[in-house]
Every structure is written in C-alpha cells, then in structure tokens.
Design a protein around this nucleic acid. Sequence first.
DNA 1: AACGAGTGTGCAAACGTTTGAAATTTAAAC
DNA 2: GTTTAAATTTCAAACGTTTGCACACTCGTT
Lengths: 338, 338
Amino acid sequence: MKSPNVTIKDIARLLGISPSTVSRALKDHPDISQATKDQVNKLAAEMNYRPNPIALSLRNRRSNVIGVVIPEIVHFFFSSVISGINKVANEHGFSVMVSQSSEDFEKEVEVCETFRHSIIDGLLISVSKHTTEYEHLRRLDEEGIPVVFFDRMIEEFNADRVLINDYEGAFEATQYLIVEGRRRIMHFAGPQSRLIGKNRLKGYLEAHRKNGVVIDESLVINCDNFESALVQTQRIIDEGVKFDAIFTVNDFTAAGVVKTLVKNGIKVPEDVSVIGFGNDYMAEMIEPTLTTVCQPGFTMGEKAMQMLINRINSEKTLEPKTEVLPTKLIIRNTTKKR
Amino acid sequence: MKSPNVTIKDIARLLGISPSTVSRALKDHPDISQATKDQVNKLAAEMNYRPNPIALSLRNRRSNVIGVVIPEIVHFFFSSVISGINKVANEHGFSVMVSQSSEDFEKEVEVCETFRHSIIDGLLISVSKHTTEYEHLRRLDEEGIPVVFFDRMIEEFNADRVLINDYEGAFEATQYLIVEGRRRIMHFAGPQSRLIGKNRLKGYLEAHRKNGVVIDESLVINCDNFESALVQTQRIIDEGVKFDAIFTVNDFTAAGVVKTLVKNGIKVPEDVSVIGFGNDYMAEMIEPTLTTVCQPGFTMGEKAMQMLINRINSEKTLEPKTEVLPTKLIIRNTTKKR
DNA sequence: AACGAGTGTGCAAACGTTTGAAATTTAAAC
DNA sequence: GTTTAAATTTCAAACGTTTGCACACTCGTT
C-alpha cells in the first residue's frame, strides 16, 4: 500500500497553473518567467517533490536499469565484479538487477528471457560453463538491448567484452615456477570447452616452450574444484607421479592441492610449489598462504559497466570492442621467494 | 536505441478493433466473444506480444521490483542471502536490485534515498555496523514502502525481521567445548554495539553458567577479523594467557586464530579447540578444517523475501513479525570428536 | 410495439511526465 | 489606438496499459 507521492499535477493544481508549466519551470526552461520558476521551485522543495521514475521510463523509453547475469553470486570473483558494476552504475544513475544462472544453461536462458521482457536498458553477462548456443542473446540484441560480456564470453557472438588476460596470467605463473627451477610442473586444468580453461593451459604450455622446457602432456590433468583436487592430488601421489610444482586453474583447486600435499608430508614450497588463480580471500588464510594470479574482478565490473553505458548512450552502432585486463602474480608462501 | 516492441495498440490497429477489447481478450475477460479472443490471441502470439512492464507499473502503481541493501556483497554469508532472495523473488515474479553500503552509514542512507525515489515496492536491509539512527528507514516507511530486516536490524524500528539465533548458536558451540572438557574458553567477540556481537557473547556466557563453569571475564576480547586475529592470538600466546579453547564471532577470525596457533606449534584441537561462526566455504579449506556454527544464509534470504512479499501484498497493516532461524554446529577438525 | 436482459464492443480517463504547437498575455512600436 | 512582435502559458498528444461506463445490438417476453 504505497501512499502516492506528490506529482507535478499536485503542484500545478495548488499553484493554479498547468502541469506543463510546472514541468518546464522545474527544468529551468527559458520560456518560463522567473517569477513562476521561483514559485514552482519553492513549492516543489517544500512538498519534497520527486519525479516519478516509472513515468519517466515510460515516456523516455529508457529505464536506467541494467541487468546482470552471473553464474554464481556466491563466489568471491563474481561478487567482486558485481561490486565494481554497482559502483559505476551508481555514479551514472543506473540501477542494477542481478540474476544468477547457477551454471545452468536452461536457467541462463530463462533469466535472459525474463530480462528481455522487463525494463532493462542493457545486459551484462558472464555465461555459464555449459553455454554454447546464443540464441537467447541474439534475441536481446534484436530488441535493441545491448549485451556486454565479462570474463566468460561467446566467441561467435559479436559484442563488447571485458576479459582477463588468462593467457598472460598463466604464462607468468608458469614462468615463475620455471625460473624457480621447477621442471615437472603439473597443470590442473579447467574444461577445455571454455576459453578460460583453454587460455590458461595455453599460457602454461607456452611458458614451457619459450623457456625451453620440454612439455610432458601427462602432467596436465582435468581438475577444477576443491573436492576433486583432494582426490586427484592423492591419486598422483599414490601413483608416484613425479612433479615439483602444480599450477591450478583456480584457487579452490589449489587449496585442495596444498591441503593434500601437506597431509602427505610433502613440503610446500620446498618439495612442491603451488600457484593458484584468482586471489580469493581464502588464499591468505590457508597454510602456507597461496601464491596466486590476481584477477581484477572489481575493475572488470567497472569496465564492463562503463562499456555498457557507452553502448546505451551511443546513437550509432559502434564496432564492438574487447578489453583485456592484465593479471598480477601475487607471491606468497606456496612458492619459494626469489 | 531500443527498437519498440509490439503493443496492444498495434494489435488493435491490425485487427480493426479497440485497444480495450484487445486488453480484455488477452485477459480472457468474459465480456469478449470467443471469436475475438481467438483472433487476438493468435495475432499476439504471432507478433510475440509482451505487455510493457513499465506501463503496467505506472498504471498499477506497483513495479514488482524490490531493493536490497547489504553491507558487503563480497562476503560468503551475504551473497548466500542474496541468492535466497533471488530464488523466492523469481518464483513470485519479482526483480531484485542490490546495493551495498560498504559498512558505511552515510552510504547506506544514500542508497536508501536512491531507492526511495526509485521504483521499488519494498526493501530488504541488513544495516551497516555503524548504523544507529533510522531516519532513512522511517522515511521509506512513511512513503508506504515496507522494510524487512535480515541478520542485522534496528531494535527501535518496528518492522519484520529475519534473524539468526545467534544466542543459541553461541550457546551450543560453547557448551560443546565445555562438554569436550574445556574450561578456559576464550571468546573473540564482535562489537558490542551490535546485537550480533552481543548475543553471541551472551550465548557464550550463558553456556558457562548453565554448566557451572566459572567465567573469567579476561578471556573475552574484542577481535572480529582475520588480520587482528593474527595479532591478538600472537599477543595472548606471548603474554602467556592460559586457555584451552577459542570461540570466535566469525570464521575469518577463527581462521586467523588457527593459523597463529599452528604457527606457534600449539596443537589444534589437542591443546586448543577452535570454533568459528558462519560456515564460510573456506572453513573446509584451512588446516585443520574448522568446526563452526552454520548460519543459514540462503534460507534467511528466502524467508526475508517471503515476508516482504506478504507485506507488499497485504492490504491491512499487520503487526510486524520476527522470525528467528536456528543454527547448526558443524563439527570438523578444530575440535575433538566426541 | 415496447420492454428488459443479455452480449459484445468502444470511449475516455487514468497512471506521471514531456513537448510541439497553439493560444494568450504583455509590451513595444507606429 | 491599432499592429506586431515577443514573452509566457496552456492544450493536447504521447508513452502502453486497464477499466468503469455507455453504447449498440440481438433476442425472447409481455
């Protein structure tokens, strides 16, 4: 039961003038006499008048609301991104609606459809792990709702993108391990169906090549979460796989690796170095503290939102841009100090 | 540049009938003949007609959008709550706008003001650590925008609330330690200006009394984050404080405690047991894994959203309700198995 | 032949705002 | 005391939808 707010009509009635005059007076339109303006502004202030945003949206066909689709809100990296999005959105008078796909393609399509039929002026999306089709995004595009990808994108869909330099980050991490003297570096990789997994693997491989270290393909295994890291690490230890470092596709995996290594009496970093990816807050809490590649989630959110605003405000259809953000290797105690 | 969607008017024009008839036909109004309804529904389907939510909002004075104000999005507990809110909101056709106060009172007031002048039908809020005044909430209430608190509330402001049973959770944790045989249990407490800190301390104290264990006030110190836990724990060790368990106000603090204890060669849980609060995902990653009180964040979000929906839909002003959610002690390896 | 009931449809106003065009008032010029 | 231009204000339509009411028809009754 919302009590109705004061409207332009109320002010007009009270002042015995027309709503149009009030509207123009409030906008400081040159046609209106100073006397009238003063009257209107005074009363508006007294009555604490605020323009009704819904009426404005209807008239302007513009809501200043944007939608965000994210695989998991409950995730340090993604919530950092949301934080950055929020910051820039607030600064520019935009509101943000967030929905999560829970890494489920069907759910992703569903929330996109909901957004499409709602009021949003634009969409920021990081697609689910299983998204390969993009019909749902094409439909948004068709209705003139601009789409900007962050972190995870669809290559075939031509739109603005903000990405992490996964390749460079992985390259730097791996190279650090090589320079540290490691020669049998394992990589716990993410799904190769996604660019992130692919690029991090690529960086890992390329660092070997550039530094003249031979690559043993058997050192790369598929493992990208805490639980399976516990299992896989135990397995390679039991099987007697020889390795002196592990570079993982994310920090959860690294946490599982470190835990299992330590439990088996393997010294980290003396016997085996570990580097994660993401700089989750937990990286400082585990023992030893985790060396990891920092992904600038907050900055990513800021940039993505800025790109979307530009897109929304631009009349003409600009060529889509891709922005690639640099990573930074955070050295902690799962690697030796140099 | 959003391309305009098909409207009721378009359908009316194409069919040579009036918009009102189309509107009624789409709603299956009994006044309309079956023939007309069929015509309308067919064309609407073909043209993929969707009602314009903004126009609906304007007419119904109801947006089906709710606002959420949260201290920190980047926080496992709070993002879990958002997740729960989102779930129930989606099920009931509501959209969710999220803003964070960053634990800053000024910022909280600002986002509340923004929300007040925007389109929301209701507000879910967990107030910042430093919020003591509630004028900004009263203003929302005045405009008929219902407010529901979750997790952190203002006692003086009479509104719906969903809370965690902090007292019970702390009581159970402390009692577990006592039954385990601990007698010098420290408490790293949160700020006593907030109910959460207060109630957890109360549970800690009461568990002592109920079990006939004498309370040593000097065992309670102020410490509620990871960094200061590192410092404080080191300090009590250096000062030779005698203790055999530590119960902390949250998991970050516990993580800092465990880390420092282990570093100092103190065996956990043999020499000292530790229990945290929150069941953050990092609790399973640290070594030893952390025994902690699970706060049902997701459930809290669900309940809060449900309460808000009830409030929005209710004509009459019901008496505000407070719902208290139970906690659950998750036994891991920083306490002895019983 | 007039009546009432029932059926299907359209008109117009409303939600709150903006804006082009028209109308009115004011002031200046002749 | 006109005429004319300029200054100010109002009208009306528009954004897309809903809904009370009126209207127009068609029946079957009296």
